[in-house]
Design a protein around this nucleic acid. Structure first.
Lengths: 238, 238
DNA sequence: TAATCTAACAACGA
DNA sequence: CTCGTTGTTAGATT
């Protein structure tokens, strides 16, 4: 959408509820629109006060009538979509998102039924936002380590117990990050860096380091097109 | 659909126009229905007169009020779908069929635009019924030979001339078959075998025979999951 | 021999 | 650190 058209449609609207699903942020603009924001492979969405400092670099700025507002710096592949409310349910990129793992309705039972008896590999399945919305290649590393699962395990071979452990691992890792307000290289709305530092990682990005459980050297392997960091002893493939 | 339900819906209707698209036969049943027939990997759909002979073996029979009718013997993977006319446009298996190459609107210009600059291999593209409806693994053999193209040629590398030759080859081979009323092992509605015999094939199913153009031995190769018969000299891959 | 849908996977590009 | 698109392949279908 051309910038003019975007600005024309947004100007004068009132920003209402802000929600999220997976990696998407939904801002309701009254009347009749939604602004959908996706930071892609990284970026900062930060607030500024009236007369306050703005970041050196940003690609998007939205100002409120009181002089405050926010900017967005996209680092790679981010996007903003402006969608009429009547088109929201069919919006190609967000209509088919799965549930957020930290959603109340994402129960152990829901997760077990979702897994079913598929042929897919567990990592590939969890990274697919249509299945579960919000897990990326950063958090998946420790999730699978905590669950004791190799990224290439076929879902149909998971035992009840393994599925339950996986559910718990997802909750543990993601809630820890929520608590710490995200990764070190991310900022929250008020510009504060996240507290989820390298020290938090158990195996992710720790190639050659000892496994925190068994001291085996952590390996980096290729799983499809993404990298995985695993303890070969704690996460065997059989 | 259970047999009873099928029979109940068909009984008393009037068979109107019969048409085809690719490998599908459409029979309009008045009022409000279409019977869609697909013979899959082979079968005979033959008429019988009142009091006339019926084939020894068949899986489907439809009788008209005058005592005539037709039977279908399916050899593999055939099917009949009964669809309400209001659902026809969304019917999963027929809604996305491409044009028949012998349709009037299948012009050289249409074909050239359809090919575009894709990465797909030419054989795989032509066998996909969403692109072009009606070419199977039998006729594709001589089509590609007549066009001088290797089945694995990338579409984006085709010259204007090669695309034009391919268009002509499709027309030549398919029209010849229409003229001869199909393959030797097929029957028309009146039970007559087709006249497109093995003698008509140039390279298809002729492994080891000399190429009709250059005498090179014809080879059988694997292309994806299908077999291809080619003259390695007339159909080089570069 | 012949057909084709589906799921999973890989290459590619923005 | 992402993900949609396109195309390929293995498996299933009866």
């Amino acid at each position: 959408m051309p910038v003019d058209e975007f600005a024309g449609k947004v100007k004068g609207k009132i920003a209402k509820e802000v929600s999220s699903r997976g990696k998407w942020i939904f801002v309701r603009l009254e009347p009749a629109y939604f602004m959908l924001i996706n930071l892609g492979m990284g970026g900062d969405l930060v607030y500024f006060t009236q007369g306050g400092e703005l970041p050196e670099k940003y690609q998007f700025k939205l100002a409120f009538t009181d002089g405050s507002g926010f900017t967005i710096r996209f680092s790679w592949f981010g996007s903003i979509h402006l969608v009429h409310e009547k088109d929201l349910a069919e919006h190609r990129l967000t209509a088919h998102l799965g549930l957020s793992p930290i959603d109340d309705t994402f129960t152990p039972e829901y997760f077990k039924r979702l897994l079913g008896k598929r042929k897919a590999r567990i990592k590939s399945f969890l990274l697919n936002q249509k299945n579960v919305a919000g897990i990326g290649n950063v958090y998946i590393q420790d999730i699978l380590f905590v669950a004791g699962l190799h990224p290439d395990r076929e879902i149909s071979t998971l035992t009840e117990e393994e599925a339950a452990q996986l559910y718990d691992a997802i909750q543990t890792v993601l809630n820890r990050s929520v608590q710490l307000r995200g990764l070190e290289y991310e900022k929250d709305f008020y510009g504060r860096k996240g507290g989820y530092t390298m020290k938090e990682f158990l195996v992710g990005y720790k190639t050659g380091h000892p496994c925190p459980t068994c001291n085996t050297r952590i390996e980096r392997i290729k799983t499809g097109s993404t990298s995985s960091y695993i303890c070969p002893k704690c996460q065997p493939l059989e």
